[in-house]
């Protein structure tokens, strides 16, 4: 995927790269914060409570 620079001098990041970063970030937050697997829940328990994720 190519990106067209909008204005001269402006930094432009390809949409593909941004999407990749957002997907990895969402996967991390989901795994650590929301996934209901027993093991993950137990390991992340205190952090989930402290960061306001629904838990239990």
């Amino acid at each position: 995927m190519t990106t067209i620079s909008r204005a001269s001098g402006a930094v432009s990041t390809s949409v593909r790269d941004i999407l990749i970063v957002i997907c990895i970030g969402a996967a991390l937050v989901f795994t650590a914060g929301l996934a209901q697997s027993e093991t993950l829940h137990d390991a992340a328990h205190d952090v989930r409570h402290a960061t306001g994720f629904p838990c239990h």
């Binding site: 957002i22 990895i24 970030g25 991390l28 937050v29 914060g33 952090v47």
Partner: peptide
């Protein structure tokens, strides 16, 4: 968790 948030924020 915060690495995940940082990736979303940077995106």
């Amino acid at each position: 968790v915060y690495a995940g948030y940082a990736l979303l924020l940077t995106g």
